[in-house]
């Protein structure tokens, strides 16, 4: 389809979004990613029955953890689509990029720069 989507997204492939752990999402933010989103299959169509619903619960949990420490929970999101929906994938990528741009950079990077350390990181996406 040769669809274009923002180049600042780094895709991490997993066999099923049920494999995505709370620590994977948290670690991405901890290491400086401005946002993370999980892209899973449509709800009700999981090959493993509940992989994507579990992923959504974990995403919700990570959003709560981020709010708890004073960061925007909305830096972590979950999207659902079917594997045949390339244009939707690209649309979600653009939507997330715009959303994160509005939120601004990961505040941890700013904090690290203030304390004299180098910051860095990219927006990360997890797709299944």
């Amino acid at each position: 389809m040769r669809l274009e989507y923002p180049s600042n997204i780094r895709i991490i492939r997993v066999p099923c979004t049920g494999k995505v752990d709370v620590m994977h999402l948290l670690r991405a933010i901890q290491k400086g990613a401005d946002g993370v989103y999980v892209v899973g299959c449509l709800e009700g169509t999981c090959h493993y029955n509940e992989g994507n619903t579990r992923a959504r619960e974990r995403v919700e949990y990570v959003r709560m953890l981020l709010e708890e420490i004073g960061m925007e929970g909305d830096r972590v999101r979950m999207y659902n689509l079917s594997s045949g929906e390339g244009p939707t994938f690209a649309a979600y990528a653009r939507e997330m990029t715009e959303h994160i741009k509005k939120l601004g950079p990961n505040p941890l990077k700013t904090a690290e720069q203030n304390s004299g350390k180098k910051g860095g990181g990219k927006r990360e996406a997890q797709a299944a």
Partner: peptide, 21 residues
């Protein structure tokens, strides 16, 4: 072990945000 990792990640980030690593 997992809950230790999650708590440490939270503490690490929160203290960095407080400029008190």
């Amino acid at each position: 072990e997992k809950e230790v990792a999650v708590l440490n990640a939270e503490l690490d980030m929160a203290r960095k945000l407080d400029n008190n690593p």
